[in-house]
Amino acid sequence: MNAESLIQAVEERFPQAVVSSHAFRGDATVIVRRESILEIARTLRDDPAFQMNFLMDLTAVDFSAFGTKPSPAFFASSGVAVRPSTTIPDEAPWPGRPGPERFVVVYHFFSLALKHRLRVEVPVDEEDAEVDSVTSLWGGANWLEREVWDMFGIRFRGHPDLKRILMYDEFEGHPLRKDYPVKKRQPLIGPNN
């Protein structure tokens, strides 16, 4: 299935769960409610129409600082700093952040049999940052969810062993949250450099 028909199929199957969707430059994205992620993931994996047996990635985004700074200039091959032109119309602009929630948990699914891929985004509030674990469906989600917990502080309900994976146990806070101070250091030994 291509991006549009994939989105349509998911929306027809889960009319209540899908909040919004878009196909940005050929990549299909559906934004779904938190309650139904486990059910949607199971259907995507097991349904013959989807057959998405490969969880390619599971990560998260912190949108709390989104849009507060101007987009950085990038450097053209000539070495001149340029910004994206505002005069050239964009036929299909990026639809923007998925919702008012602070975090978004992002799942990338791929079907090895049918060669199609889908991104599923789950908006999560800061106060109740918890989603259902998909470790029951993909064992590989175990470490990915631990990384999201470590870096963003999003908990996963039903995870067998949700503990830090990259940082040490004594580490306080979650370093990829946008409000983690850039200069904050928590060394185990040695000076606070």
Binding site: Y180, G190, P191
Partner: peptide, 11 residues
Amino acid sequence: NYATVMGIDTI
């Protein structure tokens, strides 16, 4: 950054 020791001569 938060993860790296700024020179091993601190240790």
